[in-house]
């Protein structure tokens, strides 16, 4: 059983040239931030390291940080440009009983994050959901399709903070 600080030290010592930051300013849980194109390497390490053995991915959540520049449109809605989309990984070890939260952020215009699907199978559907809801592209995911929304939904991502309902869906008027 290790606390988050010890886990951070282990990651830092094994990946000395990676940009790993620790955010304990939030009141409840500390979060380790990792570069989006290196997340799978760190994940593989976390799963296989003898002292960590994070064999279970509890949850994988996409988040729209909404930290870009907001421009008001004429109809009162907002459009966000710039800023980041993040993915949070909540890991747990069934044998060593410790938990950790990872975060990785990618830019909003071209959100590309390495998939961890081949490390934890749980990530398969969760990554599809994050793709579906936020448009985050998971590189090397074998089957990145929409999952909750219809397969023919146009390129809008409903959980983004600046999401607008489409006018029409298959010729049916949407806002009523």
């Amino acid at each position: 059983m290790k606390n988050p600080e010890e886990i951070l030290e282990l990651i830092k010592s094994n990946f000395p040239d990676f940009e790993v930051t620790f955010d304990s300013s939030m009141p409840v849980e500390p979060i380790i931030s990792i570069d989006p194109v290196k997340i799978h390497l760190v994940a593989q390490f976390l799963k296989t390291n003898e002292e960590l053995l994070f064999d279970s991915l509890m949850s994988l959540s996409g988040v729209d940080d909404a930290n870009g520049t907001k421009t008001k449109e004429e109809d009162g809605t907002e459009t966000i440009t710039g800023g980041t989309l993040s993915v949070y990984y909540h890991l747990h070890s069934t044998s060593l009983k410790h938990k950790i939260t990872l975060r990785t952020s990618s830019n909003r215009e071209n959100p590309e994050i390495e998939s961890v699907e081949n490390i934890w199978k749980t990530a398969d559907w969760h990554e599809r959901e994050a793709f579906d809801m936020f448009g985050i592209i998971f590189l090397n995911h074998p089957d990145l399709r929409r999952i909750l929304m219809p397969y023919d939904w146009e390129d809008t991502y409903p959980l983004r903070k600046d999401y607008k309902n489409p006018e029409f869906y298959h010729g049916m008027k949407v806002p009523y």
Binding site: M26, P27, V28, E29, M58, Y88, T101
Partner: peptide, 9 residues
Amino acid sequence: PPKGSVYTR
């Protein structure tokens, strides 16, 4: 609530 995040199960 204050700013922050929580994961409970």
